[in-house]
Measured scan of single mutants.
Amino acid sequence: KKRTSIEVSVKGALESHFLKCPKPSAQEITNLADSLQLEKEVVRVWFCNRRQKEKR
């Protein structure tokens, strides 16, 4: 499966949402994916990866 490159503006939106809520619910992920026009899975994985980055 190909990697999804996320635009800078979208990254900013994801980042600001992450600061408010690092573990969004499935519903929040769906809403966020719809508003940013990304697949739910891409948003879910982004949050997962971002939480791991926070641990490092």
Rank of each mutant, 00 (worst) to 15 (best):
Thr30Ser: 13
His17Asn: 07
Ile6Pro: 13
Phe47Arg: 00
Cys21Thr: 10
Thr30Glu: 09
Lys53His: 07
Lys20Leu: 07
Leu36Gln: 02
Ile6Gly: 10
Arg3Cys: 04
Ser9Glu: 14
Arg3Ser: 13
Glu7Tyr: 05
Val45Glu: 14
Ala13Ser: 10
Pro22Met: 01
Lys11Glu: 15
Pro24Gln: 02
Cys48Arg: 14
Ser5Gln: 15
Leu38Ile: 11
Lys11Ala: 09
Leu38Ser: 02
Ala13Arg: 13
Ala26Gln: 12
Gln52Val: 09
Lys1Ser: 08
Lys23His: 08
Val43Arg: 00
Leu32Asn: 01
Leu38Cys: 04
Ser35Pro: 02
Phe18Asn: 00
Lys40Val: 14
Lys53Asn: 06
Glu54Phe: 03
Lys53Cys: 08
Glu7Asp: 14
His17Tyr: 14
Ile29His: 00
Cys48Ala: 09
Lys11Asn: 06
Ala33Lys: 00
Ser16Gly: 11
Gln27Lys: 09
Leu38Met: 08
Glu39Gly: 06
Cys21Trp: 04
Leu32Thr: 02
Lys11His: 12
Leu38Lys: 01
Thr4Ala: 08
Ser25His: 03
Arg56Ser: 08
Asn31Lys: 13
Lys1Gly: 11
Cys48His: 13
Arg51Gly: 08
Val10Leu: 12
Val43Ile: 05
Lys55Arg: 10
Pro22Gln: 15
Cys21Ile: 02
Lys2Ser: 10
His17Val: 10
Gln52Trp: 07
Ala13Leu: 10
Glu39Arg: 05
Gln27Glu: 12
Ser35Cys: 10
Glu54Leu: 05
Glu28Ala: 09
Ala33Pro: 01
Gln52Met: 07
Ile6Met: 09
Lys11Arg: 11
Ser16Ile: 05
Lys55Glu: 13
Val43Ala: 03
Val42Gly: 05
Lys23Arg: 11
Val43Leu: 04
Ala26Met: 11
Ser9His: 15
Lys53Gly: 07
Ala26Glu: 13
Cys48Phe: 14
Gln37Val: 05
Pro24Thr: 02
Glu54Ser: 05
Ala26Trp: 08
Ala26Arg: 10
Glu15Val: 02
Arg44Ser: 03
Lys2Asn: 09
Val42Ile: 09
Ile6His: 09
Arg3Val: 13
Lys1Gln: 06
Trp46Ser: 04
Ser35His: 11
Lys2Val: 11
Arg50Met: 04
Asn49Arg: 06
Leu32Ile: 15
Lys23Val: 10
Lys11Ser: 10
Asn49Lys: 06
His17Cys: 07
Glu54Arg: 04
Gln27Trp: 07
Ser25Ile: 02
Leu36Val: 03
Val8Glu: 15
Gly12Ala: 15
Val8Asn: 14
Gln52Glu: 14
Ser35Trp: 06
Glu39Trp: 01
Asn49Glu: 14
Leu38Ala: 02
Arg50Cys: 02
Glu41Thr: 05
Glu41Met: 03
